[in-house]
């Protein structure tokens, strides 16, 4: 950990103004940032603590959705009765993540911005384009069990590790931000996270100094919500593959469907074509196959993660069969 200055922001605009300085960084729960600082993967010169800002509320929106403050802790969000009743997929995704202690600290904004768990990214002595642009990607020809099979580039094959964000993607959430001049902006979660492309170090649409203030959820879509996380142990492990599914179906007929995936790409993965295939369709193996094909279009393994292709297919089938059974 490098020496850094520390200040506690007393207003959102103050925080954004302070954070615009090169080398400065927002700290929320700190569960990801501090780990990375200890290993000098992150070396901010200034920390701006936003924990005292009034961004810890969950409010109803006029449209019938929810507005989740950026500082709402993962535990509180998962336990909120409105979330549990109307956005079960979000509650379940949160509870499938990390551990109780981490969830007590982790915030909504921080969770969206947590960085990849790629082993090489975590070790400053190894090549990594994301951490040190131009140094190469150690994972492509290395140990890549947990890496992406979709949306990869020749520069980076990392995944976004969040469970929460996958559920939010299925829910068509929006991310509200404020910049140093106090200007607010709303970005759909689809556009918030980037694919690695030529610049894996740029992970989101956030500009320097821009701060997440809230995530808004539109009114809940009709149907059943499911989150299925496949992982190497029963808890406290990142998703190899996860599926957030929202399905409106009766007696073998699907009216509408939404699917989002974790563990597969640099961002929560959602394929419009798959959702279309599943909309107004009969809940049978042929439909599921077509949907799986659409999701996996262009999928490519790198050796250690080849298994994610059949695993995704099988997990999808399992979720679809379960969700359309009634």
């Amino acid at each position: 950990m490098r020496a850094f200055t520390y200040q506690r922001a007393d207003s959102v605009t103050h925080a954004a103004a302070a954070a615009i300085k090169p080398g400065s960084k927002i700290i929320a729960g700190g569960t990801n940032l501090l780990d990375l600082m200890k290993l000098q993967v992150e070396t901010p010169s200034d920390l701006v603590d936003i924990n005292r800002l009034p961004l810890d509320k969950i409010e109803e929106t006029a449209e019938g959705g929810l507005r989740i403050g950026a500082l709402v802790r993962n535990s509180d969000l998962a336990a909120d009765p409105r979330v549990r009743q109307r956005y079960g997929v979000l509650s379940r995704a949160l509870l499938a993540g990390a551990s109780a202690q981490l969830r007590n600290k982790a915030t909504t904004g921080g969770n969206l911005l947590q960085r990849t768990r790629c082993y090489y990214f975590y070790d400053v002595t190894k090549p990594c384009n994301k951490r040190s642009p131009g140094s190469g990607c150690a994972a492509i020809a290395g140990f890549n069990r947990i890496h992406a099979i979709l949306g990869t580039s020749e520069h980076c094959i990392a995944t976004h590790p969040s469970d929460m964000a996958v559920a939010m993607r299925a829910l068509d959430a929006n991310v509200e931000t404020v910049d140093g001049e106090g200007k607010t902006k709303v970005t759909s979660i689809a556009e918030f996270h980037y694919l690695p492309g030529n610049t894996p170090e740029i992970e989101t649409s956030l500009k320097p100094g821009e701060i997440i203030t809230a995530v808004t959820l539109p009114p809940p879509p009709p149907g059943v919500q499911v989150y299925r996380k496949v992982r190497d142990r029963a808890s406290y492990a990142f998703a190899l593959v996860s599926v957030a599914a929202i399905f409106d179906s009766t007696r073998g007929r699907i009216r509408s469907a939404r699917l989002a995936f974790g563990g597969l790409a640099h961002k929560p993965w959602r394929v419009a074509k798959a959702d279309q295939i599943l909309s107004d369709a009969s809940a049978d193996t042929a439909t599921f196959n077509a949907a799986a094909n659409a999701v996996l279009e262009g999928a490519r393994g790198f050796g250690g993660n080849d298994f994610k292709i059949p695993l995704t297919r099988r997990t999808l089938h399992s979720v679809l069969a379960e969700i359309t059974r009634t």
Partner: peptide
């Protein structure tokens, strides 16, 4: 050893 921390070197947790 690539996975040299307890996030990625997996030992059983309570739920296992």
């Amino acid at each position: 050893f690539v996975n040299h921390d307890l996030a990625e070197y997996h030992v059983p947790v309570h739920a296992d």
